[in-house]
Simulated scan of single mutants.
Amino acid sequence: MNVEMHKPVVGFSCGDINGIGIELIIKSLSDSRITDVCIPVVFASNKSINFYRKVLPDINFAYQSIKDFSRLNPKQVNVYNCWEEEVQITPGQLTELGGKYALSSLEQATKALKAGHIQALVTAPIHKKNIQSEAFNYSGHTPYLKAFFEVNDVVMLMVASNMRVALVTEHVPVSGIAQNITKANVMGKLKILHASLQKDFGIDKPKIAVLGLNPHAGDEGLIGNEEETILKPALKEARHQNILAFGPYSADAFFARGQHEKFDAVLAMYHDQGLIPFKSLAHGEGVNFTAGLPVVRTSPDHGTAFDIAGKGIADHLSFLEAMYTALDIVNARSRYADMHKNPLRKMSAMIVANAQDEVIKEDTSG
């Protein structure tokens, strides 16, 4: 195998064919320098790619069509044809076809990821309603991937240059949140998050802030008792397992006072508690990363954007950031594996981390 083929192979599912997914892919991969750092594989069809190329006449997007991975071109974008038939594309419309072909792309991309044909997957947005079928009875990509890779649990982790926010519950109705906040669930998420920060982000002794469920973190039991009966015991157990988890913190004041800047990640109890401040305060474009999988999967932090689909005006920066984050995590996992194969490197890292322990405790005590 030549040196070109040693670059990571990154797959891209096309998402809803009537959304902005394929437009984002074309814009993100049109820069020829992308192939200097990875080998891109788009899971779609030539005809769907060509439809959106016409929407973007000023962008020079060249690609090679393939039907098997032995034909990968390391110096060009590769389009893996998931279907050959003519498909009616109606940008901005919620249709059954949009969900059908989004699922076809996702299924074939995840199979390639599991087989090792690609080293990372960047998923373009799907619509959670029209993709529902016997093959996809999930609330989104995250639970689908959890089931596909047969892992006990995963964590939805939002990543930006200045913050990382993870969730205990994801797409759960507000009425069902509290019943999902258990000590076992919180501990499970903390373990996955802790391991991911080490393995995927190269942080040897990560500091994790845990938010309370109730207003003012329950005010010592006056406004709900989950903090006293669930979260504090979970934090105590976490520390016994050498996980540096702190809290529970009142969610409103926590972000307003910039406390998130003192931690490597924040564990929020539910979707809006974590994502509203993340999308408000994150520097640059946010990325959704699925922590806890044996593979690397990222996506942009937005949806199908039907209102602007097909108009050529979609901003691709979050999608591009998702690709770069996936590459960073692939490289971080490689370094992590290498360090743990080499006892001297691991020992050196432990000495440095232990020397920082007192600083860590002082930083988080205030």
Results as ranks from 00 to 15, higher is better:
residue 124 A to R: 06
residue 147 A to H: 10
residue 86 E to G: 03
residue 202 G to N: 15
residue 286 G to S: 12
residue 238 A to C: 02
residue 55 V to G: 00
residue 298 T to N: 00
residue 54 K to T: 08
residue 305 A to P: 10
residue 341 K to L: 13
residue 300 P to R: 08
residue 303 G to W: 08
residue 266 V to G: 05
residue 217 A to R: 05
residue 320 L to Q: 07
residue 198 Q to Y: 03
residue 306 F to L: 09
residue 364 T to N: 12
residue 39 I to F: 10
residue 199 K to L: 06
residue 320 L to V: 04
residue 228 E to F: 03
residue 24 L to N: 14
residue 221 G to I: 09
residue 26 I to L: 07
residue 185 N to V: 05
residue 290 T to R: 04
residue 276 I to Y: 14
residue 135 A to W: 02
residue 253 A to W: 08
residue 215 P to H: 07
residue 241 Q to G: 00
residue 245 A to K: 14
residue 275 L to R: 12
residue 45 S to F: 15
residue 51 F to K: 13
residue 221 G to T: 12
residue 92 G to T: 03
residue 123 T to A: 15
residue 222 L to C: 03
residue 164 R to V: 04
residue 330 V to W: 11
residue 171 H to I: 10
residue 65 S to N: 07
residue 126 I to E: 01
residue 284 G to T: 10
residue 203 I to A: 06
residue 72 L to E: 09
residue 346 K to D: 14
residue 284 G to H: 14
residue 131 I to F: 09
residue 193 L to V: 08
residue 102 A to I: 00
residue 150 E to P: 01
residue 272 D to V: 07
residue 337 A to L: 06
residue 194 H to M: 02
residue 5 M to N: 14
residue 66 I to V: 06
residue 57 P to H: 13
residue 83 W to Y: 15
residue 190 L to S: 09
residue 87 V to N: 06
residue 53 R to N: 12
residue 232 K to C: 00
residue 235 L to D: 04
residue 77 V to H: 02
residue 70 S to A: 13
residue 262 K to D: 13
residue 165 V to D: 04
residue 37 V to H: 12
residue 136 F to M: 11
residue 101 Y to L: 04
residue 98 G to E: 13
residue 351 I to K: 11
residue 67 K to W: 03
residue 252 D to Y: 05
residue 148 F to A: 11
residue 171 H to S: 13
residue 217 A to Q: 13
residue 2 N to P: 06
residue 200 D to F: 07
residue 319 F to M: 13
residue 131 I to R: 01
residue 150 E to T: 12
residue 284 G to A: 05
residue 13 S to R: 07
residue 38 C to V: 03
residue 349 A to I: 07
residue 9 V to P: 00
residue 148 F to Y: 14
residue 112 A to M: 08
residue 15 G to I: 05
residue 173 P to S: 09
residue 342 N to T: 08
